[in-house]
Design a protein around this nucleic acid. Structure first.
Lengths: 140, 140
DNA sequence: CTACATTCTCCAGTAACTGTAGAATCAAGA
DNA sequence: TCTTGATTCTACAGTTACTGGAGAATGTAG
């Protein structure tokens, strides 16, 4: 009867900046696998769970939906997959990420410009929305 | 009685990739100002509304919450604001955006690597989660 | 003047959490 | 050992940010 060396749910939560309830929710919807349980029925997690959850939280924070994350994590499902399929999926995500990167970079540039402007004491043209719009990709 | 030259809600919706109901929702919660109305009570929009909504949708897609967007668009509220306050707000958002940019860039690198790997016909080490985790900022 | 599309308000449903209630378990100190 | 506060458990209700539908009014093309 080796003692349980896994992390309890609270430790996983604090390590990944996730709420305890959110972790249980992810397990419910199958985004995380069923956690191992201790003798008394408490969830117990290992380093792999920390990695997976950290990835999920990061991707969520970047605006990916649960379904998109399911499809992203499917890329890591192992060597038994069809290579062409995985490649197509990854390539599609790559295009998407590139677009987000561009928009994020434009937002960054505009914020930096505002900080600069306000530094100089002037504020008259802190027109963040117009400035960002002016650089939008497909002239929305 | 000049005729109404504004866009109806459906046109604003298609121009910004937003659902009609979502536009009305944004008005309800005060994220968009009350729209002008035609004689018969229909909403009518101008170019400024297109810009503002395009910005909101872009920011939402990048993972910013409605409250964060309220605070971002506040930067565009005009010259009657306190300069130091605006600067501080913009600087805070800038740090946040930089962090997101970093994470986005790492995700991009990993996706590119997978596409490369799969290109060569091998797939054994398409370990997207582990690879991304390995480059996470604060060793979560 | 039809007939079909668009808009209106109101309200119910969904996605992704977030919080709470009540009971069980754990871990540290007296 | 006993107790006392912190964690965990399940279950369910509430929140945020939409999304969709019903039924009525209005717009527009033929």
């Amino acid at each position: 009867m080796g003692r349980d060396v896994g992390l309890p749910i609270g430790a996983l939560a604090s390590r990944t900046g996730t709420k305890v309830n959110t972790i249980r929710y992810y397990e419910d919807i199958g985004l995380l696998p069923h956690a191992a349980r201790t003798a008394s029925g408490r969830r117990s997690y290992g380093p792999e769970d920390v990695r997976r959850l950290a990835f999920i939280r990061s991707a969520r924070g970047l605006g990916f939906s649960i379904d998109e994350i399911r499809s992203l994590t499917a890329l890591a499902a192992g060597p038994e997959q069809d290579c062409a399929e995985v490649r197509a999926l990854a390539a599609r995500h790559l295009l998407d990420v590139d677009e987000r990167l561009e928009r994020m970079a434009r937002l960054r540039a505009e914020l930096a410009r505002i900080v600069q402007l306000c530094e100089g004491g002037r504020i008259a043209d802190c027109r963040v929305i117009e400035a960002i719009e002016a650089t939008l990709p497909s002239a929305v």
